[in-house]
Design a protein around this nucleic acid. Structure first.
Lengths: 123, 123, 123, 123
DNA sequence: GTGGTCTAGACCACC
DNA sequence: GTGGTCTAGACCACA
């Protein structure tokens, strides 16, 4: 996935979200080494300090840890990763229900319509 | 629902979305008369021209029609309203599936997790 | 208390410690407004960004909160302040016991010697 | 205890503190022979001159004495050792009281909290 | 080379 | 005026 950054929201937040997704989706496997701050910053075309701030956030989320001299690594705590992944999924689901509620659809309607979408996609 | 406008996106688009939601959710019933452009603009604290543009867009969507002499009305075509409502719901569902897919969840997982959220919310 | 900064330790950490002390000791009362980032930075003779980073840490500790436009305030949650204060005290006590242990003094010895120090001070 | 040296403080001072601790805690018994300057310097991975300076300081403190022909020995003056040990303890206690005072705790509070820590540690 | 920190200076949104 | 963010560039410790 490319680095698509919208200047209307804090860049570092978007970096957090992007990397977080790579981690929970397994694109960056547990225990693997992250590219250096400078390299990541180059890839994303942002200032190294901005990337540094994003990685600091991910450390606070315990998705990364720093080995002083050799670089940053994805946590080996797969439970932590699963936890964050589940939290993100629950947030998506919650937001979905809220939006559908606003449209006037209850939870049962959601299931019914989702089935219809899947059936429609098959045709 | 209050008028919450984000200056980072075109205002008129947000007005379209807001009013469209009022219509498909039945808050503005079919056939009912809309407040004047001036009043709506005042409510939303936007320039009347911006509101005018939004209402024009809603007419193009056939959710509103103009009675030359007496003002604007919500369409009486309940099928059209239902159609738009369904389109919006399908869009929500599609976006939801895409986001969950990115997290690594298939459609089956979505149903399973939604059940879990509902169960959790009950407790 | 003056701003005494040792260049051998991260400045922002010393700023955190300094301000934290002002808060838990009641020098900055709960709910009171903090000087602006720029003013604090000027007082401490550090770059505003460094002070900003320190204040960010204190917000994460829930000792401060930000009112978007009007400035930063000490939390009104006196329980939180008391909690942090107690944590700091326990840390001091723990470190004290460890140091004394290294000297060969057990916990009972600590009490005995402390009494002696107090008596000595009175003379 | 290993030789942990912080380059931000004078090395020889840290050597003094380290060896002093070994003496007052009895790890180097009174009257026992110290390894050679060369060996100690090797152990601590410092320049022999630096170690020499540290040992000179310890002689000034009357914790060591030099036997012209056979090397350096720990003082046999156990009272002197006890004196230094007590001085160090008093220093620790004084610093502890100062830190707690800054947090807003009086001497009575110190005792109360120390009891609480000990009770908590037992559980 | 790695990450961590600091400074300087800029721009933005909010009110 | 307030805080928030971003960039640029520098220096340091570690190995």
């Amino acid at each position: 996935m490319a680095w698509v950054l919208n200047p209307d929201r804090p860049i570092y937040l978007q970096l957090v979200e992007h990397i977080r997704l790579q981690i929970v989706s397994g694109h960056y496997p547990p225990g693997s080494r992250l590219p250096s701050v400078r390299d990541l910053a180059g890839e994303a075309a942002v200032n190294p300090n901005t990337m540094q701030k994003a990685l600091g956030e991910l450390e606070r989320l315990e998705l990364l840890y720093t080995q002083r001299t050799s670089g940053r690594y994805i946590t080996e705590d797969v439970q932590r990763i699963a936890q964050v992944k589940q939290d993100l999924a629950y947030q998506q689901i919650h937001d979905f229900f809220v939006q559908m509620e606003r449209l006037g659809y209850g939870k049962d309607d959601c299931f019914r319509l989702m089935e219809a979408v899947i059936e429609g996609g098959k045709q």
